[in-house]
Amino acid sequence: MTLPQARIERSELLSRLEGPLAGKLRSARELLRPERRSEPVPTVWGRAIPGLERLLPAGFARGDLVELTAGRSGGRFACVLALLAAATASGENAALIDLGDGLDPQAATATGIDWNRLLWVQPRDIREALAATEAALTGGFPIVALDLGLPPLPGGRGAETMWIRLARSARAHGGLAFVAAPYRVSGTAAATVLELRRSQARWSGTGGAPLLLDGTNGRLLLHKAPHLEGSRGETLVFSASRKREPRVALSA
């Protein structure tokens, strides 16, 4: 299509829209907003999460609220740390709003997080957690991971309006709000919704030898994403790091 043609079609389209939209739109800015929303800047951080590259080849978009849910030992915290490790390794500053107070810096060192670039915030309840997330997004952090810990969540799941406000804040400041929760909390505010399902743990060692935890197997499901119809899934494997703790096995 040549440029003059494109101009004609655009003006025709606008003239057709004028009638029905005249009563709804108050300014041209409102017409431009949906156009901007459809063109977020893609980031590559999503590749840090195992399996996501195949489900979302473009990765996550800056300005989106992404929600990841998983039950216990589903690999949720591992995904959060992997995302933070990828962001800090690329030279970005990142914030972890850790409602469950679950970060163990010694164990998480193996993920490759650059501690100098990670801001760790430990709120006491959901209200503080949402306020801290919004403050970090407003402050220009390009990625803010909010991990809600384990149920029961202190302060409940938060009002849906608060999540919508958070999504708008992420959009306005161009930051990625990554929410990791034990169950769905953000309602319609999330642009992308993922779920992790654990299938089983893998143990090594048979017979009389002591067993060692090798990791877990699971499945990553993409329930909601821009331009996605239906759900998609991807098998994934989490390996346990033996560098976590200097342990000595007491064999019989």
């Binding site: 998480a108 098998t235 994934l236 790091s241």
Partner: peptide, 30 residues
């Protein structure tokens, strides 16, 4: 960005071959 999550081609503890799947590092939530 390096691709730190290669396809898992290792064997399972029960000897069966795993399906194609991406690999991550299991974390500990304290």
């Amino acid at each position: 960005m390096t691709r730190g999550h290669e396809l898992d081609s290792g064997d399972r503890s029960d000897g069966s071959r795993p399906r194609r799947g991406a690999q991550g590092l299991l974390a500990v939530r304290t």
